[in-house]
């Protein structure tokens, strides 16, 4: 269960949104500039200086941010994983070393097993020895996903994580990921502006527009209008 009440400013942009996510998979849906990335970053514990007002985040009854009490748990101590739009792989490390970065507490053998498992899950097992500069955009996103999942976070934040993958590869990876996070009791929030991604997730959807919550509920209800538009665009075939 994730509850939050957040207000933040970045230049002229003003985000003011609250939510209570109980589902294992929630989609943040909205056009570019709606505030999806800003919200995910605040939930992850970044951009503390942009917070205004109450600023409250509670995850599984643990208070992570509380503006009133000046409480702010740093990003690395929130048991949160994040895949940002920019994959931000460490350029001097191989894909495997990138995935191993957050596994400092495991001994060598356990760490290697975990790295292999995560790369395999993300469909990037063959990329282990490659460096980020030798990866395509889609491959880098797979490795970034493996890196975020490796420390077994309780909350996974995905910001347009498969934008560089083609539709079929993205759907396959999304299905595999959903199965895996369900099996491991992980709560996931996926930010996307792609209707098909949001609908295929079959989850609860928070519709954002210009930093405000417009609607929240099951994907089929919240995105009914977008679904019709998508169907019209796809045509009678």
């Amino acid at each position: 269960m994730l509850e939050f009440e957040l207000e933040a400013r970045r230049g002229s942009f003003h985000l003011q949104v609250e939510g209570r996510f109980a589902a294992a998979w929630t989609v943040l849906f909205g056009p570019s500039g709606a505030g999806k990335t800003t919200l995910l970053r605040l939930l992850a514990g970044f951009d503390r200086d942009r917070l205004h007002g109450v600023g409250r985040v509670v995850f599984t009854e643990r208070l992570l941010t509380d503006g009133k009490r000046g409480l702010h748990i740093p990003p690395g101590q929130r048991q949160t994983g994040m895949v940002a739009q920019q994959t931000a792989l460490f350029p001097h490390l191989t894909a495997a070393a990138n995935v191993a970065y957050g596994l400092r507490n495991l001994d060598g053998a356990a760490r290697n097993r975990r790295v292999e498992e995560m790369l395999d899950l993300a469909g990037a097992a063959a990329l282990a020895r490659l460096r980020p500069q030798d990866l395509s955009g889609g491959q880098a996103q797979r490795v970034a996903l493996a890196r975020a999942l490796a420390p077994a976070p309780k909350l996974l934040l995905l910001d347009e994580p498969f934008s560089a993958l083609d539709g079929q590869a993205s759907d396959l990876l999304l299905d595999r990921l959903k199965e895996w996070v369900r099996a491991h009791g992980m709560q996931t929030i996926l930010a996307t502006h792609d209707v098909s991604d949001a609908l295929s997730a079959g989850a609860e959807v928070l519709l954002l527009h210009e930093g405000r919550r417009v609607a929240f509920g099951p994907a089929a209800e919240v995105l009914a209008r977008e679904r019709v538009r998508l169907l019209i665009r796809l045509g009678p075939d």
Partner: peptide, 27 residues
């Protein structure tokens, strides 16, 4: 050093000393 890399290290649990040794110094 690009700030997304620093953010990535932070969310993976690296403190300032580890970030310095594993990210800033080599890059």
């Amino acid at each position: 050093v690009p700030s997304p890399l620093i953010d990535a290290a932070r969310i993976l649990g690296a403190g300032p000393a580890r970030m310095t040794a594993t990210l800033l110094v080599p890059l």
